[in-house]
Design a protein around this nucleic acid. Sequence first.
DNA 1: TTGATTTAGTTGCATAACTAACTATATGCC
DNA 2: GGCATATAGTTAGTTATGCAACTAAATCAA
Lengths: 150, 150
Amino acid sequence: MPNNQFKRGELYSFITGMASTALARRLQKNFKQAGIEITIEQWSVLYHLWKEDGLSQQDLCVRSFRDKPSITRLVDNLEKLKLVKRVPSKNDRRINLIYVTEAALHLQEETMNMANQTLNEALEGVSKEDIERCKEVLQQVYDNLNQGVR
Amino acid sequence: MPNNQFKRGELYSFITGMASTALARRLQKNFKQAGIEITIEQWSVLYHLWKEDGLSQQDLCVRSFRDKPSITRLVDNLEKLKLVKRVPSKNDRRINLIYVTEAALHLQEETMNMANQTLNEALEGVSKEDIERCKEVLQQVYDNLNQGVR
DNA sequence: TTGATTTAGTTGCATAACTAACTATATGCC
DNA sequence: GGCATATAGTTAGTTATGCAACTAAATCAA
């Protein structure tokens, strides 16, 4: 029997990710109250593009832990909102490079501040050390589940 | 400045709950490979009913951290699959009490074992102590975000 | 050069989530 | 009793996710 055997009845919140769900909901609410009409999922795509503009959809898949259809549709919706633009790559015509627009850049500062502030509220009373430890555990869980998968 | 100020670029995986998503996906795949044709969300409702049968939909909302429409539809789908039954309460006719069927009871042992095993695989290499610490952090995050909310 | 395989992205279908608005029953106050 | 309010659940509309099947372009091999 593995020494970290999980007792029944303890697994539910781990599987459902209730903390991250609550956090996403709160951030969504904060966006709305500030009159920012994008979803958290759309924001999370912009987040990666703000860090590095001109990523391919495939890059976005990897970085945002989503599958290809999800990214296709998030980019669709972001394009409708005129927050990003698809630009076909000249080297490889299969590839779309995604660039943020001026409008999206205007959102960056405010939404990043809101995200940081929301996260800090969520982590109120939790020590830096415990946060680090928790992040490591979650990363390990992710890695365990994806080893051997490509 | 709060002493647990989160640095930019570190928040993404926390918000998206990539670990819990990966875990849910893996468990779903394991169900499918075993020929069990229910979704993780449906399973999570059954999970609460196995612990305590005859809960109201409202009870299920609270315990599964979902809103009312979500539970309505999950119960709809579970009822179609003949895994639960809605029984109107005699004391209060607004209330539906949800009971698992024989068919659902047959799923309990196997799926709970699969869930525990999947979780143990996910937590391979993580110490009991770190798991505890991580659970406490996630609980604290949830509580922080829901204090003052009812 | 042609034909098989891989890669990037899209489309279709089912399930699930949130919000808002709705119905029906129960409760509380006058 | 009667009306306002609260509670349990449903319905409708939009967005997102997962899977499977698909198209188009690129690569690799004979």
